[in-house]
Design a protein around this nucleic acid. Sequence first.
DNA 1: AATGTAGTAGACAGATCTGTCTACTATCAG
DNA 2: CTGATAGTAGACAGATCTGTCTACTACATT
Lengths: 196, 196
Amino acid sequence: MPSPLSSPPVPRADKRAHLVDTALRLFAAGGYHAIGVDRVLAEAGVAKKTLYTHFPSKNALIAEVLRERDRRFRASLAAFVDRRSAPLDRLAGVFAWHRQWFEEPGFAGCMFLNVAAEFHGEVAELQLLAREHKQAVETYLVGLLEPLTGIDAAPALAADFNLLLDGAIGVALVSGEAGAAERAWSMARRLLPATA
Amino acid sequence: MPSPLSSPPVPRADKRAHLVDTALRLFAAGGYHAIGVDRVLAEAGVAKKTLYTHFPSKNALIAEVLRERDRRFRASLAAFVDRRSAPLDRLAGVFAWHRQWFEEPGFAGCMFLNVAAEFHGEVAELQLLAREHKQAVETYLVGLLEPLTGIDAAPALAADFNLLLDGAIGVALVSGEAGAAERAWSMARRLLPATA
DNA sequence: AATGTAGTAGACAGATCTGTCTACTATCAG
DNA sequence: CTGATAGTAGACAGATCTGTCTACTACATT
């Protein structure tokens, strides 16, 4: 045990990760402009100087939040899908995962769609992160579709299904109905070739 | 001519409507939190007191902007669709109208999806206006679908197509590709019964 | 003529925003 | 022991936010 008896008020921990985690939660629920850094700091119990030693600006914190959100999103989705084996079942899992997401209490839409809506291209880095996230989801869909439709038809259908997922997010956000996920999956099944 | 020779510095006009028009343009392009009332007033050339005699708060102005946006949206869409007569052509017009919208220079997504994303239910009036707008679009789709699919199948397909439109908006916002509208229309055609 | 309404210009209050800075403390490497 | 690093607490600057208020002007109706 190298740790002595005396200890700092807050034990040795990764403040940076804690900041990102807190900011992710608050930005997801409250929006990027509506949540100020003071709010993030108070919630995280971290001093302002600490934030600005790790990040040059609030936008840089938002960018890191989006990168972290992308990692968690993809990991959670992949873990959910990997509990299933049949190709059609795995594809259905993507929509089922979205349904669970829509049902979460603080659901307030997709952080990437929202960042595009709030900054609408004025902050190039954030717009790029949103685009990359959506592209990653589409690429993931291609892999799920290939066993069902063959390698040629998969990319176009993946783009279609990606649009369906964004549509479900929008409908769920405005109407509050988590059933938008099932509607999207119902449409997806009808769009799949009969051979699948 | 009842108007005398002398005139006020700004000619007699409907300041309220001018305020709403200016605010609509700025909020659409810049977002609701990012644009302050001072910016709206400067752009409109109107005094602050005038705004607060017509509206009790900024949120009330946003609400009126959304009502105006809903009126213009529906009128513009209906006028576009009414230039066509064949039922299938009229339905296609909805997606074509969206394509034109996506191609507009300052396109920054749907003001109703955006208000839901920025305030996410914290301001009940705004959330309700967003819901009503989307409901109105869906009802309009029902009317366009009935000649094609019959009165029984139209409501469910209208909800489907509404989701497609929201999906196209999201894809266009993040990717910048106006072709999302055609993708959505391509999906819509495939979802229509073969008899249509 | 008198009064009320709507407008302008802009100061002002009070809050909140991002970002910087000072002063101090704790941990760790050498 | 010394110095570097990272942390805390919080004051501070300067901008910006919403909303109120004063003082004045123009117009319309009575």
